[in-house]
């Protein structure tokens, strides 16, 4: 438990890789990202229920890649001079103008679709690596205290969910004792009611237990902090709204205003957290290892941003090259293998 790296660090590391993937359509670079994410995920994952997430997301990514290519074949898009196949074009009604069904399939377009699909699959792999590496329960423990009530509800949900599955099983068995074979839509009703009744009774017992154990002993905020929190939160939200509008208006001010709006909103979350008077048992701490893990992801992202263009050229088609700087940056992102605990055999 104490040996594991902070889940937030894994997410930031994965975000670094995702930044690289979001800027690249070069299949060599994307392949490298998938390899790095996969290698780290497989080496550093702990023995948790989520450990297999990477495999799941990898397969999902492959499916997305396939669908993207299929889209291109059927719905066309970017074209080039090299026609591989000329599919018959299906005529569409007038209101559907702009949508093309069928038509010529070009090598350039196919490569473009492949690279885009690969980009999407790579992003999914980054998310999958983060899911496999970061312990979701500990991530929940790191939510800001202002979200305490909500996070307790989620903790309760995760505790109760397996119990409900067990209780559904026993209700189903009990139904058989009354000579019923429960199937179809009726089953929903017959199983759901006892399970729900049981669940609600359980929720009352749980609420009593939480109450007796000090849930909700709030310090209450002094008026000044309360006003400040309200000011920060609402100000931040207004800033974000303005930023969103500016962004959609096409002005260049959008992004900076959004960022400026985010700061007071986050600050409001922080001052609001003081309303909850409670402490954390064995809180997850940020140490050197976390900094190194995040740093390695950051290096990959920075080299990709600063380095050469990572776009796959499609017109004319050329073999993709391997730009040196981003490749080195991605190799740095392998560092967690050396830093983090490995899975015990």
């Amino acid at each position: 438990m104490s040996g594991a790296v902070h889940p937030g660090a894994w997410w930031l590391w994965a975000l670094g890789l995702a930044v690289v993937a979001s800027r690249a359509t070069n299949p060599v670079v994307l392949g490298l990202v998938v390899a790095v994410a996969g290698f780290v995920a497989v080496t550093c994952r702990q023995d948790t229920p989520w450990a297999d997430s990477y495999d799941m997301f990898f397969k999902f990514g492959l499916a997305v890649l396939g669908i993207r290519v299929l889209f291109h074949v059927l719905l066309g898009g970017v074209d080039g001079p090299t026609v591989l196949l000329d599919l018959p074009e299906v005529p569409l009604p007038d209101w559907a103008r702009g949508i093309r069904l069928g038509g010529p399939l070009t090598a350039e377009g196919l490569v473009f679709a492949l690279c885009q699909g690969l980009q999407l699959a790579t992003l999914l792999c980054c998310v999958g690596a983060a899911n496999a590496l970061a312990n979701a329960k500990r991530l929940l423990r790191s939510l800001p205290a202002a979200l305490y009530e909500v996070s307790v509800a989620v903790v309760v949900a995760m505790t109760v969910a397996p119990q409900l599955v067990a209780s559904a099983r026993s209700v189903r068995r009990a139904r058989a004792l009354r000579g019923d074979v429960v199937r179809g839509v009726r089953a929903v009703k017959l199983l759901l009611v006892p399970v729900l009744e049981g669940a609600f009774e359980r929720s009352l017992v749980l609420a009593a237990a939480m109450d007796s154990r000090g849930y909700g002993r709030h310090a209450g905020l002094p008026t000044r902090t309360r006003v400040l929190t309200g000011f920060l939160v609402l100000g931040g939200l207004v800033g974000l709204c303005v930023g969103a509008y500016a962004l959609l208006d096409g002005g260049s001010a959008g992004v900076p205003v959004l960022v400026v709006g985010a700061v007071p909103a986050a600050a409001g979350l922080w001052t609001g957290s003081r309303r909850v008077r409670r402490s954390r048992y064995r809180p997850d701490t940020w140490g050197t290892r976390e900094a190194l893990v995040v740093g390695s992801g950051l290096i990959a992202a920075v080299t990709a941003v600063l380095g050469p263009d990572l776009v796959m050229p499609t017109v004319p088609l050329t073999a993709p090259d391997l730009p040196l700087l981003p490749a080195l940056g991605l190799l740095c992102a392998l560092a967690p293998v050396l830093i983090a605990d490995r899975k015990k055999p």
């Binding site: 329960k137 309760v156 017992v205 237990a209 409670r278 402490s279 954390r280």
Partner: peptide, 26 residues
């Protein structure tokens, strides 16, 4: 039915967290 968390150590610590006790004491 009264367990709030799902592991032994966290369950033992829950009341103390609610009382806001410092970490070394917990």
């Amino acid at each position: 039915a009264g367990f709030v968390t799902d592991s032994v150590e966290e369950e033992l610590a829950y009341s103390m967290e609610s009382l806001g006790l410092p970490n070394p004491v917990m």
